[in-house]
């Protein structure tokens, strides 16, 4: 079952129509976390959500995960409405959140055991540990691993359920620059191998352009989708390619970091 799937992905299409979500603060003020969001994600597509804090990108991701219900609108996965959390929509957080009382093997096996599939699919735990390069760390406890290794284990834990959509909430935000770049390549490799739909929230413009088929830019007050930019480049992408830099500049401009006059692009 873990063998790379061939051909285009057929499952994992997400449809979001007119989704609204408000939070009420303790002082009674109402925060509009999502106002009328529409988004269609094709099966097997890699989407990155980017935007300043408070733009609702995490809220949208958690709504897709089914962790909190929305006030209005419709969310579907392959035509089925999303009503609550389920194994078909895996979620990886910024913190690895591995269960400290389980070793790495048992952490990865958690989803299989929870769905009573462990007995038949035992071997897959090892295969997914291998996929993220942790095959020799099964007996280690989470606190014995570095941050990057923990995050890889968290990735394996979500992937072992073979979700049709993998939701990533700034999974690389806490890692140092080098580990992060390695992990980006790792995620792309896994994505290409598994053909899973990926929706990733990020703060990092570079990361957004490097990974995504489409970058979804969100803006706060009111929280909505500002623009969707397609990145039509081959992978692995060169971070210094002019097209890459141009897309990066475009994104920064939308996010309003390019508003003021900067030095000209070419001087030499």
């Amino acid at each position: 079952m873990v063998a790379p799937q061939t051909g285009a992905a057929t499952i994992g299409a997400i449809n979001i129509r007119g989704v609204k979500k408000t939070f009420t603060h303790q002082d009674g003020s109402i925060i509009e976390a999502l106002s009328n969001v529409d988004l269609s994600v094709a099966a097997g597509e890699f989407i990155t959500l980017i935007g300043p804090s408070g733009c609702g990108k995490s809220t949208l991701l958690r709504a897709i995960a089914g962790l909190h219900p929305v006030d209005a609108g419709e969310l579907t996965l392959d035509g089925e409405p999303i009503t609550g959390p389920a194994a078909e929509r895996g979620l990886v957080f910024q913190d690895p959140l591995l269960f400290p009382w389980l070793n790495i093997h048992d952490n990865v096996a958690f989803g299989l055991k929870a769905r009573h599939l462990y007995r038949e699919h035992k071997a897959e735990v090892g295969q997914f540990l291998k996929l993220v390069g942790l095959e020799t760390f099964g007996k280690s406890y989470p606190h014995q691993l570095s941050g990057g290794m923990q995050q890889r284990a968290a990735l394996a834990r979500a992937l072992v359920n073979q979700p049709s959509v993998l939701l990533l909430d700034e999974p690389l935000g806490a890692l140092d620059a080098f580990t992060r770049m390695n992990m980006q390549d790792e995620i792309i490799r896994i994505w290409q191998e598994r053909k899973t739909t990926m929706i990733m929230v990020t703060h990092d413009v570079d990361e957004a352009v490097y990974l995504a088929d489409r970058v979804v830019v969100m803006c706060p007050r009111p929280a909505r989708i500002e623009e969707i930019i397609s990145v039509k480049r081959e992978r692995p992408r060169a971070r210094s390619h002019p097209d890459f830099l141009q897309l990066r500049g475009k994104l920064l401009k939308i996010l309003d970091f390019g508003g003021q006059e900067r030095e000209p692009e070419y001087r030499i």
Binding site: A87, L91, L97, F99, W101, L102, G111, A114, R157
Partner: peptide, 28 residues
């Protein structure tokens, strides 16, 4: 931490499993 319960629910754990395989070990 509530996040442990959220993680386990996205991994397909039932309420019962969340109590006995997440809540209790974490509180040990």
């Amino acid at each position: 931490p509530n996040a442990y319960f959220e993680v386990s629910s996205t991994l397909g754990a039932s309420r019962w499993r969340q109590i006995f395989y997440v809540g209790i070990p974490a509180a040990m």
